[in-house]
Structures are given as structure tokens and as C-alpha cells.
Nucleic acid binder design. Structure first.
Lengths: 150, 150
DNA sequence: TTCTTTGCAAAGGGTTTGCACGAAC
DNA sequence: GTTCGTGCAAACCCTTTGCAAAGAA
């Protein structure tokens, strides 16, 4: 359809190679919870999940690890406008839609959605290297509900 | 070029009609500062500006007014990922680019940039009503600097 | 042993809120 | 006179940080 992404912002934020990651039990459990959940989680959702298995874990540790794991590319840090930071275990390229009714976030596969950065650059003297795109609307459930009660 | 926006998210967040806005001196000064600045300002930048003219104004008042003024459509609330909220007196439709070098935000006119929401809806059962799009890159000054020092 | 990571608790930034007083209409 | 907005200060939420002790390699 349109054109290609020159460069993905998230790539630039990743740690350049760097030393091997020390695999602590906390780290393993956090990653494992992402694998189980397979959705976006806020830091304190992760904290609650991890706490069930390691009651003495601290919130600080969770925050520090989420930061590290996202820099290393194990999870994706997603910061949608005006909301709490979230982390995403699903690393396939996708966008997010926030449902205006239930305020959940759902994934939108990125297959055909591209922003043409060349077109953007024609608007001025700047250089465009990345973008962030998010949607609002109705998730499938809420859409069905809304269509029944018009 | 591409297609049209069905509906702009910011519209939905505006106050539905509602009573007339009471024009306090604080409100006037805030609006006036936006007119003078003609850029994005954070709440505390506004606070500092207003304080020079009304030393007893409170930060709370500034926050409350920015909220109200943006709901009424006098200024635009812009919340870029992972950064402090900003408010924008420029109400022409435009996007924002954050310079990765100086971290300033610059405006990108929206002339030819459109996201085709129909294409997005083909990706799933959800309904898409709005989007938020922001860019990263280099502002004109930093771009020039970067091109001289490759 | 060495270097990283942890738990804890305190501090930080940005923003919101309860309240009694004061200002618009 | 009524309502709405204000100043003030405290509270709030989310996140980060300093430090000494614990744990990986």
C-alpha cells in the first residue's frame, strides 16, 4: 500500500549490544508472566503477578527490570498518550487501539498500516526518523454492544 | 493523497455545549500568554508566565484552567508518549515532531498527512474513530548541524 | 571474588483535590 | 445573592533512586 518505515524508533532506544543479561529469578518470573499473559501489563500488574510467586519482590525491582528488558528487546515499552506506561510481551509489529467504552487496549496487526515518512518530510525542513501511531475506537465486544443499543 | 479522517478524537473530548465560560482575569491572562507565545507550553511554563503578571496565581488554577480551556477548544492538549503534558495555542490541524537531539517539539502542518482509518478497520472487528500520530526526528536546526558533522 | 541486582524506604516529578474565601454574573 | 473560580496546601499517582545486603557468574 503506502511506503516503508525508514527506521523504527524503538530500535534506536535499544541497548547497543552490551554485556550478557544476568538471569535472576526475578527476571525469569517477570518474563514468564508476560509469556502467560500475552498482553500489555502495567508495572503494578506485573508486580502483583510476580508477588504471588515471590512475595518479597519489590516494586523497584519490577520497574528496573521492565526498563532493562525493554531496552534489550524482550518486551516492548508502550506509552500511550495520557496514560500509565505499559509493557508488552507481544513483540510482533502491531499498533494499539484504546477502547473509549471499556478503556482496554487491543492490538491491531500492522500488516497494511504504514506511514509514509517521505510525505511527512515534504512538509518542512526537518528529518523524520520514526513515528508513533495509536488509535481510539471501540473494541470488538463494545462495538457489538454499541450496535445493539444505538 | 490518502483518505480522510472520519472523526477527530479531540472533538469527542470537548465539552458538549455547556454553559458560558466565566471570564476571570486568570483565564484571560492564560489565553493571552498562549497568543503571545504561539507554541506549546507546559503547565509550569504557563504558570511562570502568568506569575510575572499575577504573582499570587496558583499552579492549581493554571492546571484547572488549562483543562477547561482545552475541553472548550481554546487550546489543544497534547500528550506525547512518555513526556510531560503540553498545551498548544495553535489550533490549526498539525502534528508534532520531537527532535531527538534538542528534544524540542516542532509543528508539522497536516496538509497531506492522513491516516486511512478504513484500512485500519480491515485489520479486525473493532471500530476506529480516531488516532494520534507523532513523529521523532531532527528539527531543521539540528538537521543542519547533523549534516555538517556526519 | 567481582560485579550486578535486590529489597527497602524515601524522594521525586507532575498533577489533582478539599476547603474556605473571593470574584463574576 | 448565587454560582463558579481562586489560593493554598496537602494529597495523589506513578516512577526513580541511594544504600547496604544478597546473589550470579
Amino acid at each position: 500500500l503506502h511506503i516503508v518505515i525508514i527506521y523504527d524508533m524503538r530500535e534506536s532506544e535499544k541497548e547497543s549490544a552490551g554485556s550478557r543479561l544476568r538471569m535472576t529469578r526475578q527476571r525469569q518470573v517477570i518474563l514468564d508472566e508476560f509469556r502467560k499473559a500475552n498482553t500489555h501489563l502495567t508495572a503494578d500488574e506485573v508486580y502483583e503477578k510476580v508477588r504471588k510467586r515471590m512475595p518479597r519482590v519489590s516494586l523497584g525491582t519490577v520497574y528496573r527490570n521492565l526498563e532493562i528488558l525493554s531496552r534489550r528487546g524482550f518486551v516492548d515499552k508502550i506509552e500511550l498518550a495520557g496514560h500509565q506506561k505499559m509493557f508488552d510481551g507481544n513483540m510482533d509489529k502491531h499498533y494499539h487501539l484504546r477502547c473509549v467504552r471499556c478503556s482496554n487496549i487491543i492490538d491491531i496487526p500492522a500488516r497494511n498500516i504504514r506511514v509514509d515518512l517521505k510525505t511527512v518530510e515534504e512538509e518542512g525542513e526537518f528529518k523524520v526518523t520514526g513515528y508513533r501511531l495509536e488509535f481510539t475506537g471501540l473494541c470488538p465486544q463494545c462495538r457489538r454492544i454499541a450496535e445493539k443499543n444505538p
